[in-house]
């Protein structure tokens, strides 16, 4: 259904380096992001995977400095075109947002303003960054691009008159209004039905092929990324615990957490078994355990996992894992 071009252009458009983000009082910070580094190349799809509360959304929002609330950046940088986004002025940020980097969020129904017709919301996005285009025609073109039937009529609908899938298509149309170089899709399908999920993902990879933008796809479902992403970053408790090209990582996951995530993916084919979820839950980010943050839940833990936290180490070509005892190739049990 999807095909991933094997050779994406190697030209990073955004580089996150050692990003650290805290919430709450400095005396007892919630360490939402801790030393996260990754980069996204031109035209590439990168996935960010992890359970709820692992800091995926705040990492994504940081790409355009959109995190609100009592947040502080304690370390790191987000380099875009040689400039650090975290140091940008408000006016530069406004140019960056929507124009260069745009976002699609989890709840399409909540991301659209309930009091405006969808057409005028898309039009606003166009007017904001592009001068001298016929806004009406452009809205129509975008709605057609994202596969909305009867776009002339749909333009005049209010968000609550549309289904979730249609709302998400409108959000994608808005995000594409200014031809961004990077589209950040934060769990774009989590709130939708399974069949609609597949349609939206297909639409995204179709649009990527047409428009050549890069995509950061955030999800808690590792099963979704195989077909769409080139590379995968697995996040746990505000850290990246494993990274690699998506096919290889899925074939040979090395971190026990990645194993756990894979076991929790519902399968449409193969033996009907109970879905395994990882025991326990994500620790509170203000009271993290010592050592490897995953060790209390890890089936393969050894005594020294509680000591010093492991580094994210190279473990092969383009691969890295943050574990003292990574599962080696062919070693993991058949599922």
């Amino acid at each position: 259904m999807f095909d991933v071009p094997e050779t994406a252009m190697k030209n990073p458009i955004i580089e996150v380096k050692n990003l650290g983000l805290h919430f709450g009082p400095a005396s007892r910070p919630v360490r939402a992001v801790d030393g996260v580094s990754f980069s996204i190349d031109e035209g590439e799809t990168v996935a960010l995977v992890g359970e709820s509360g692992c800091g995926k959304s705040v990492t994504a929002l940081s790409l355009a400095k959109l995190v609100s609330g009592s947040s502080r950046y304690v370390s790191g940088s987000v380099m875009y075109d040689g400039k650090d986004v975290l140091q940008m002025e408000e006016s530069e940020l406004r140019w960056l947002r929507g124009n260069e980097i745009s976002f699609v969020f989890q709840e399409p129904g909540m991301s659209l303003n309930p009091v405006f017709r969808v057409g005028s919301q898309i039009a606003e996005a166009i007017r904001l960054h592009r001068k001298g285009v016929d806004v009406h025609d452009e809205v129509l073109r975008l709605l057609q691009l994202v596969g909305i039937p009867a776009p002339e009529k749909r333009m005049r609908s209010y968000p609550h008159e549309m289904s979730g899938g249609m709302q998400q298509r409108v959000m994608i149309a808005m995000a594409l209004a200014c031809q961004p170089r990077l589209l950040v899709a934060d769990e774009p399908t989590t709130a939708l039905d399974v069949t609609i999920q597949a349609q939206i993902l297909e639409l995204l990879s179709e649009l990527q092929k047409q428009l050549g933008m890069a995509i950061l796809l955030i999800t808690h479902n590792l099963g979704l990324v195989a077909d769409v992403a080139h590379s995968v970053n697995v996040m746990y408790a505000g850290r990246i615990v494993e990274r690699g090209p998506s096919r290889e990582l899925l074939r040979n996951p090395e971190h026990p957490y990645t194993h756990g995530l894979l076991a929790a993916v519902p399968r449409l084919t193969g033996s009907v078994g109970r879905l395994k979820s990882i025991d326990g839950s994500v620790p509170h980010l203000a009271q993290l355990p010592s050592g490897c943050k995953f060790h209390p839940r890890c089936p393969k833990r050894k005594p020294d996992c509680e000591g010093v936290e492991p580094e994210l180490r190279e473990s092969g070509e383009n691969r890295a894992v943050r574990c003292y005892y990574p599962v080696k190739q062919g070693q993991h049990e058949e599922r």
Partner: peptide, 16 residues
Amino acid sequence: HKSSTYVTAARALGLG
């Protein structure tokens, strides 16, 4: 309303 997603979405579009 400030913390609702549509406001984040509007900020993400680059609105002042």
